[in-house]
Simulated assay, not measured.
Amino acid sequence: LNGVPIASLVDNGAERCHVSLRFAESHKLSPQDGTQHVVQPGNGKTVLSPGIVSIPWQFSGESESYLIDCAIIPGCVRDLVLGANFLRLTQTLTKFKSRITATARGVLRRLHLNLLGGEKQRLWRFLDDVLASALPDTGSDVMLVSEDYARSRGLHVDRNPQHRLELELGDGTVTYTSGVVRHLVWSFGDSGEDVTSDFYVLPGMPADIILSNELLFELDVFSRFDEFLI
């Protein structure tokens, strides 16, 4: 950023790029007039963004530069988050995935769900043999289903208190899962590739299903299964 190295979080669960309030203030970035707006983190509540700032950005070792519009998010624990629209534009999760040098779990100790805004891209396949749409979220450390989805499917939720995970959200607030559904099978259809995983249940989550960064990066989902992304 302006010739200074900075680590960013690659998060396609965030609809747009955003920066922390601390980062904006330290770089003397003022929001554009009339850009104040409300965004929704992973627990379905809302947070007010003071507005949009524009920052120049270059990927390390590359000459092309970009001017990124970023929402200021008070409480955000990461200085800069690259969101879904920008990641698709720059093919960072597919053709140029070598830009990603570490996953969020490798950098942060706490479990995170950085989902912010109304990202609409979904991966359509099967969860326990039922057609379902999942948000493939590189900003989530956990496989998740919403409380409403678990109820609508009649899934058995183990609500033992030991399964209440603490998750830090994109605005820096903390929420807790309400239980876990064991041994659900996410199937990639005709590929013959199935993944069995425990899915934690999160009340208020604005997506039915969230696939974690570990699964997405290990299986190279954005390159290998792009035909299922809508």
Rank of each mutant, 00 (worst) to 15 (best):
G3A: 07
V4F: 06
I6S: 09
V10R: 10
R16W: 03
F23W: 07
A24T: 04
H27C: 06
L29S: 11
Q32Y: 11
G44H: 06
T46G: 02
L48I: 12
P50A: 04
G51Q: 11
G61R: 14
G61V: 09
G61E: 12
S63A: 15
C70T: 02
A71F: 06
I72N: 06
G75K: 05
C76S: 15
C76H: 05
L80N: 04
A84W: 07
A84D: 12
T90C: 09
T90A: 11
V107L: 12
R110L: 07
W124A: 10
S133M: 08
T138E: 09
D141T: 11
M143L: 08
V145R: 07
V145F: 05
S146A: 03
Y149V: 00
L155T: 04
D158Q: 13
N160A: 10
N160S: 14
L165K: 15
E166P: 01
L169C: 05
D171F: 05
G172I: 01
H183L: 03
H183V: 00
L184K: 09
V185M: 08
W186C: 05
F188W: 09
S191L: 01
F199M: 09
P203R: 14
M205L: 14
A207Y: 12
A207K: 11
L216V: 00
E218K: 15
D220H: 14
F225C: 03
D226N: 12
